[in-house]
Nucleic acid binder design. Structure first.
Lengths: 235, 235
DNA sequence: TCCACTTCGCAAACACTGTTCGCAATATAG
DNA sequence: CTATATTGCGAACAGTGTTTGCGAAGTGGA
């Protein structure tokens, strides 16, 4: 019996009380998977490959994990242990931006993480600790509970999104998109886009290309202040 | 020769000038793939499956598309044709929120779209048209070109993210995460989280559960105003 | 000490997947 | 009518996640 489904992996006991003791552990398997993913990307993390890295057979992994998706959840949460939580300074925005800086660093160390955060947000022990710290930072902020939790979700997603574009997906993809953009502009349609790129392309001193780290910080600041402020008035 | 790589699929000619004329078209293949994805999800879109829907063999598809990823890009851009662009009213936020409403509708019609938008943002003809309209709406807005394009990217991503959580990924996933959250709170740690959920859970009349459509609209409005306003002052 | 009992390890098999190859069929241009 | 160019596609290749079945390896109780 492969443990009750519909429960996240963190709610299923790791080791059994009786019987032959396991030769590995979830932590060990997760670490092996992370090593592979760091070096060769997420798609290299196959059950056979991870098992081989541990010197065992693929089928053995299913004693520790229900399926590959469980393993991905474990990886996603595991790197959350790399956060270092400092006591809040009193200025929540500054503190959250510092947290964002750490997120950026972690996402850079593990280029596969952005994909997992965007496609299967999982809440494991480390994710919970991060959320708790996020809320601690906002403890005296007047926003509603729902708003704070939404802010957390968007904080994660924004970081992931930004780093995904800056990293692997970016290099090839971005300049292929740019190639098509140029061709499309050459046809004369897309007036506004043409205007904008013409105005931006020349060496406008006030419009110099910014450091990605600065752009990330600026966008994160804008989004967080937008989310955690009095509601905008709409019709 | 499979056409020059490093170019997006929209820059590669579809039909050849000479030789036996093709029996299908990219549009036809894309439509078949979308039908399958709408009914059975993205993972059901295999080359064999799409080919079978067209009454042909899997290998034939490679005459129209370099690989499966190309097909996904085509799908992603194709549904962009469902947007209906109205002339700007003069209030850019209202107009962009209306665009967001359309995005929401499209994402609901095609539950697989969120995943593609988040993981492989592609800029095809329809994506370009959307971007052009987005910029047209912001034509008289004083923000920089870079800021407007960033706003567009985040507009797409936010819509996708929100709808992904509301749709497929949500049902099972959300209540599994919730199950773990409850268990974790029962241990006594996670002080802030506990406080927040206690305060929010009782039938607080001012804090009633909002319609997802309203939440989406509110979040989108906050993010867009945050991104397209004078910069917040930081240290 | 022995033995049921429980769990682990894992080779082999299954049902898939994306993609390539090679060749026959089919159209067009000259 | 003849090159020539392109399409259609069965078959094969190298992988994938996962299940099954059974032997090996420990543990708790008698």
């Amino acid at each position: 019996m492969p443990a009750e489904s519909s429960h996240p992996i963190w709610m299923r006991l790791e080791a059994a009380a009786a019987g032959r003791p396991p030769g590995h552990s979830r932590a060990e398997i997760t670490a092996a998977a992370i090593t592979i993913a760091d070096r060769e990307g997420l798609e290299a993390v196959s059950m056979r490959r991870v098992a081989a890295a541990l010197g065992t057979g693929a089928a053995s992994l299913y004693r520790y994990v229900d399926n590959r998706e469980d393993l991905l959840d474990l990886m996603s949460d595991a790197v959350g242990a790399e956060y270092v939580y400092r006591a809040p300074t009193g200025d929540w925005l500054t503190d959250l931006l510092e947290l964002g800086e750490q997120a950026r660093a972690i996402l850079r160390r593990h280029p596969w993480l952005a994909f997992l955060l965007l496609t299967r947000p999982a809440l494991g022990p480390n994710g919970l600790a991060l959320l708790e710290h996020f809320l601690e930072t906002l403890a005296s902020h007047p926003a509603s509970a729902a708003a704070k939790i939404e802010a957390f979700a968007i904080f994660s997603a924004t970081s992931a999104l930004f780093m995904q574009n800056e990293l692997s997906g970016g290099a090839g993809r971005q300049h292929r998109n740019a190639a098509y953009l140029r061709q499309a502009l050459a046809t004369g349609s897309h007036r506004r886009l043409g205007e904008l790129l013409e105005a931006g392309a020349p060496a406008d001193p006030s419009q110099h290309v910014r450091d990605p780290a600065d752009r990330y910080r600026d966008i994160l600041a804008r989004i967080l202040t937008g989310l955690l402020s009095p509601p905008p008035d709409l019709g």
